[in-house]
């Protein structure tokens, strides 16, 4: 259980503001693992339809923030709001029902189910929408992600790149308003990463969901995101447009360094 913090009237006002909008947001989230401060007061808001990049060195708390947002860990303190509801201590499936879909850093498919069944679980368990034709939706998603040919194959039998696509298709099948992608470009070459960029742009255009993407592929992040949030050692180092973040002295010192000069 997260500890209640006595923040006075200011906190109350902030909460009621948050309650009115349709965003997914973390408010002053703190997460400690036995004394390790994975997150130390991070706030981040994701609007529907925007693409936000979350970057930072290894161990800066990116995945932890994703896990707190999707309900896998309850935060030590701070709150998580989803579409006007306080979901700080709710289970992951409740948050998924509210419209938060996600993928995992080290792909976590339902290995022995078929590709179609993987996507079907997403469709029948995700955000409830009246009058959905699950079979048609699943077929469309399989088609969109070039998975129709292997729909009846067990998920674990697919090559790595296709498994990544299954994971995104499964998340999208749940009709999310917010999509959290944890290192989707890991292990991809430049051509594949370009293709992923097209895919995510297309997803935003056709599904209208907000995308929060964690990745080390700065070439991808800089071209894809409208807004970038930089974490370092569990605190927010900088936040702003790619240009602003690129120009930030602190960011260059702590994290980006030579990578920026070479890649962008």
């Amino acid at each position: 259980m997260p500890a209640e913090q006595g923040q006075g009237p200011a906190a109350v006002v902030q909460s009621s503001e948050t309650a009115a909008d349709g965003t997914l947001s973390a408010r002053e989230v703190v997460k400690h693992f036995r004394g390790v401060h994975a997150l130390d007061g991070v706030s981040l808001t994701l609007q529907p339809g925007e693409i936000v990049g979350l970057i930072g060195p290894n161990g800066s708390g990116k995945t932890t923030l994703l896990n707190v947002l999707s309900g896998i860990y309850p935060p030590t303190s701070g709150r998580v709001w989803c579409r006007g509801r306080d979901v700080t201590t709710r289970k992951p499936h409740v948050i998924a029902h509210l419209g938060v879909g996600r993928t995992f850093q080290n792909i976590r498919l339902f290995s022995h189910l078929t590709v179609r069944q993987n996507v079907e679980v997403g469709s029948v368990s995700g955000r409830k929408v009246e009058g959905v034709d699950h079979q048609a939706d699943v077929d469309r998603l399989l088609d969109r992600f070039s998975l129709s040919g292997s729909a009846e194959a067990q998920a674990l039998s697919l090559p790595y790149g296709a498994q990544r696509r299954v994971e995104i298709a499964r998340a999208l099948a749940g009709r999310p308003l917010f999509l959290l992608l944890d290192e989707p470009a890991a292990g991809m070459n430049e051509a594949e990463s370009d293709q992923l960029l097209e895919t995510i742009m297309g997803v935003r255009k056709d599904f209208g969901c907000g995308v929060l993407i964690v990745d080390h592929d700065l070439r991808l992040i800089m071209r894809l995101c409208e807004r970038i949030h930089v974490l370092a050692e569990g605190v927010t180092l900088a936040t702003g447009t790619p240009q602003e973040v690129r120009a930030d002295r602190q960011v260059i010192d702590v994290f980006l360094g030579d990578a920026l000069k070479d890649d962008v």
Partner: peptide
């Protein structure tokens, strides 16, 4: 799905 991976099943709803 929960047999294959309880955590990602929960996250899928």
């Amino acid at each position: 799905a929960s047999r294959e991976d309880p955590l990602s099943a929960e996250s899928t709803g």
